[in-house]
Structure formats: C-alpha cells, structure tokens
Design a protein around this nucleic acid. Structure first.
Lengths: 223, 223
DNA sequence: TCAACCAGATTGTCAGACATTCTTGCAATC
DNA sequence: GATTGCAAGAATGTCTGACAATCTGGTTGA
C-alpha cells in the first residue's frame, strides 16, 4: 500500500458545506458584486447558526471571494478593471507555464479527457447557454492545470480564476466570443496532444490575451 | 481628494489580532510543523473565546498555514519536499517576473529603499542571527514585489513564501549560505538599479535556484 | 436646507451547553 | 506476546442566547 495514500475519510462538516454553497452562489453570480451579505439572513436561508456561518465567511474572506469590513459585515467585492488586469496578468503567467508543462508530460489517457472536454465546450458554444460555456471552458483548463505536474500552480490558478468569474461570464456572452474562444482552445489542445511545448505556450498566451480583451470590452460596454 | 483613497479606519478586531499573532507564531517557528493546536489551550493563552479563535483558525486554514481535519482539529502542516519543490517553482515564476518588471519601472526613491534593505541584510549576514537574516531578506524581496506594479503578484507571492518559511529559516543557517545569498541579492539589486530587465530576471532566477538547492541540502541533512 | 439626534438593524464577542468523535490506557482473549 | 475490545477522558462540531459597540436611515429642530 502506498504510504501517501490518505485513507482518512473526512465527514463533511456544516462549515464545509456552507463554504461550498456560498462559493458556488458567488461564482454563479447569485450574489452580485457589491452586494452585502447579512448574517442573519444567510443563517435563516442556510438553516445554520451564526458561529458556523461566520467561520465559513472567514474562509471565503481569506480566499478573497468576499470582503469583511469590521462593523459593516461581509460583501462581494466589485473588482475594478485595474485589479482584474492584475489578476489576468498573473493568470497568464501561470496558465502559459501550465500549458507548456502539460504538453511535455501529459498521458494519453488524459489527452482523451481533454479532448472530451473540448467537445463539451464546442457543444456549449453552439448553444447560447453562456453558463454552460463558462463551466465547460473551466473544465478544459482544469484538466490542463491538473496535468501540469505542479499542484500549487493548480491551486493558485483556481483561486485567481474564481475571483474573475464575474468577468468570464459576461465576456463569454459577447457576440462571437464563444466561437473564437473555441478556435483558440482547439489550438491549445492540438499543441498539447502533439506534445509541442512551445506551441502550447504560444497558443495559451494568445488565448489569454484575447480573453482579457473580451473581458475589457464587455466591461466597458456593460457598466 | 483622490476618490480611491480609502479613509475608512478599520478598528482592529479580536479575530484580526488573533490571526496576526498566530501567523507570526507559525512563521517564526514557535509552532513546529506537525504539531497540533488545541483550541482550549490557545483560547487560554490568547485570552479570547472559542468562537473568535475558531474564526481565526479558519482564516489561517484558507491561507494554508494550518490544516484542519474534521474531529481532529488544527495542526501545522509538515511540508514534504515534493510540495516545497512545487512552491519553489511557482515562486520562481512569480519572483522572476516581478524582478523583471521592477527593473523597468521602479522609481529612484524606491531604489534607495532597496539598497537600504540590502545593506540591512549585509549586516545580518555578517552576524550569525539567522532569524534577522530571514527577516531582512524578506524585506528585500517585498520591496521588489511591491514595486513590480502588480499587487496580485505580490499577494500570491507573499502567501507562498509564508508556507515555506520553515525551510527558509533552516537553509539560511547553512554554512556560507548567507554570504552567497548576499552576493546573489546584490546582483539582483545592481540589475534593478541599472534598469536592466533581462539581467534582473536572470539574477533573480539564479538566486531562486540556489535558494532551492540550499533548502534541499538542509532538509536532507536535518531530516 | 442642514445639522443633530434617535431608534432600529447589524456586527463583534462572549459564555455555556451538549452530542459526536478521537485518543489512550487497560483488560481480556487468542 | 500480540491483538482485540472496551471504557473513560479529552477535544471538536455545533447550537442557543446574550449584550455592547457600531452603523444606517429617517425625523426633528434650528
């Protein structure tokens, strides 16, 4: 038996469930950026006590998914474009690296998985369900990140992407963005499948820059 | 008055104080990796209630400075070398980028500050106070990170460095490491002061690789 | 119109309680 | 002797209830 196999079964606690539910609510846009969260309301909605809720809120605060100002309580932060840009830049750094590493080390089995997720995105892109588009695109990336050989890279990346989920959802519903996104992702996939590290980096960088540009457009237009 | 100036004064809450104290205790090595933290003991030592403590612990858990296993409670994680390597790799990615950006955008005033911190490290390196060495070296980096123009890069970097503080302390007390570290840092400083982005990246990368190697040695020798 | 003020809402923090789970030492069994 | 089973104690997960400090919005008074 491998020594590092963690056999411990972790019972899901109330606080974990709460963190997951709230995180999902934020990422899916149920809580709009800028809106405040009222402890008593959330307790009632979730059917939990205040201490449990507050623990969950502290976790989300540390993840930067909410902000808690003393005596004002928690709120979903409204990202400025400067902050979003900074996140996109770091994300580029990580994602390009991950794509490159992934290309030179991914197993055949995972390549198939990656292809499958690309097809799933293709289907979503054909529809006009921007929620499904964001989800399937996220799956595609997470397979790449999971196969880059560095779990920290994956972890940090996930944290950053979560913080710009708002922009991702809006930019994906931009006219023609899903289709061009599909083309870029296919290029990434081809490079990785071919084991071409350099091409994978290049394709990944191109995709990121376009995604960022799309996010900028959607932000400027929408306000 | 600039619109983005945040004039809100934030009263420091019990939970913030607690997070800071505990974080410092972990970073300074007061709590050894692997050791478990007992809520009741910490409450008594810190003079706070259990709910406040638990909120603070959740924050630290989200920062990955402690691990909380359901029904077993919090503990300081003992980093494996694989995990440490992964962190060093991402840190390299971020730090090299930061050094490069810093070189091409830092103001003269900040260069002076950087020089001052280099001198402080020089002094610490001459002594044999490895605690002071780690602190002053951390100051040096944080000035670079603060001037790279990307606050997210800075934030993520700080989080990663915190998680390997244990290794940093040990490797710095390695024979001759402080002196060679000083030489590497001086090279970084010179490049940045000269505004030479490429050289700054190169020097920064070299420094990181050596730091990582030193950490490996200290780990292998010390168990 | 504007400033002061007051009531309600909300958060920060604590104390205490109890069920569940983990740990550990000891006894019993093979 | 090694292993299993059990029981007591310790520690955690969660809840209820409470109260002071702070914030918010509207009303009153100048």
């Amino acid at each position: 038996m491998p020594a590092d196999l963690n056999l411990r079964i972790s019972p899901r606690t109330v606080q974990q469930e709460t963190v997951d539910k709230l995180r999902l609510a934020i990422l899916s846009g149920l809580f709009q950026p800028g809106s405040r969260l009222i402890e008593s309301q959330l307790c009632a909605q979730l059917g939990i006590s205040r201490p449990s809720l507050r623990e969950a809120l502290r976790s989300l605060e540390a993840e930067r998914l909410i902000e808690i100002v003393p005596n004002r309580g928690p709120a979903v932060p409204a990202l400025s474009w400067e902050e979003a840009t900074a996140i996109y830049e770091v994300r580029e750094l990580l994602e390009v690296e991950a794509a490159g590493r992934c290309a030179s080390r991914i197993a055949a089995e995972q390549v198939q998985e990656l292809e499958k997720s690309l097809l799933a995105f293709e289907e979503a892109a054909a529809s006009h369900d921007s929620m499904a588009q964001v989800t399937t695109a996220a799956d595609f990336y997470s397979i790449i990140l999971a196969n880059c050989g560095n779990p920290i890279l994956e972890e940090v990346h996930r944290g950053l992407v979560a913080r710009i989920s708002f922009f991702r959802g809006r930019s994906m519903s931009l006219e023609g963005r899903a289709q061009s996104s599909l083309a870029e992702m296919r290029e990434i996939y081809e490079s990785i499948a071919a084991g071409d590290e350099k091409a994978a980096r290049k394709a990944s960088k191109k995709h990121l820059l376009k995604a960022k540009a799309a996010a900028k457009i959607s932000m400027d237009s929408g306000i």
